[in-house]
Design a protein around this nucleic acid. Sequence first.
DNA 1: CAGTATCCTTAGGGATACTG
DNA 2: CAGTATCCCTAAGGATACTG
Lengths: 139, 139
Amino acid sequence: MDEENMVFDIEHDPYNYVRGVVFSRWKPFILHAMDTDEVTNFSRFCKQLPITQKVLTQNLKALEQDGLISRTVIPDTPPRTEYRLTDRGKSIIPLLHAVYDWGWHVMKEENLPIDALGEMWHGYREKEDDVMYHPFGNK
Amino acid sequence: MDEENMVFDIEHDPYNYVRGVVFSRWKPFILHAMDTDEVTNFSRFCKQLPITQKVLTQNLKALEQDGLISRTVIPDTPPRTEYRLTDRGKSIIPLLHAVYDWGWHVMKEENLPIDALGEMWHGYREKEDDVMYHPFGNK
DNA sequence: CAGTATCCTTAGGGATACTG
DNA sequence: CAGTATCCCTAAGGATACTG
């Protein structure tokens, strides 16, 4: 055995994997929305998240490929598309809550402003109808 | 009250905050290493993580500013620098473990190769001396 | 409705060389 | 030892327009 270190390969590491699969900019919000809604369609996402259709499509496609969500096209006229969490997708939700909670408390400690809409989604603030006009789900 | 939606501002959202503060490419590994080592110095990090000094410095500086680690310069000749987790830094460790665990299980389900060194650090694989030659800590 | 197709911008990271 | 200083590259995302 030589003195050469075995070198750590981040490409095959679970942290890095999770980073790509769930911690991109918008995925936590998409997953959270789908957990809240049970059945969610494309246009609902667009209503309150300031995310472009292109990025939304990219993220939904990736989430589907990674097995976190399922996509069903319903052949109506016009056809609709339904998204829902798979078991794997559901299994990440508690972790997302824990992440939000940790971040929320640290931001409070640092006196950083926290988005009110997100707080309502997570039950950290009383829901107000005028703000929750399109609370990700049924109007 | 107008019909205009209140728009969600991701810049003030805890998810996004945590993403920046702990889920950049290398921070989980740096934090994990510091949790394992208690007291860690700069050069130890360089031994096994394939990370450049510049990026390491950037990350350590950011972690310090965000209150996750503390930095102490010891006036020897040459001066050394010691890093250790703050209470806030320690408080994120269980969450990191949970992330690793979730990712590890999903990668197993998908038959994706998992880095052996990372598995040993996390206790998912028996430690082998020839592989753990520089296990982040004391040689 | 649920996307594609283009084009562009930027933050985070990598490579390499240099310093008190 | 513990960093700076440059330069470069790429992936993720944003803006805008178009489509079956």
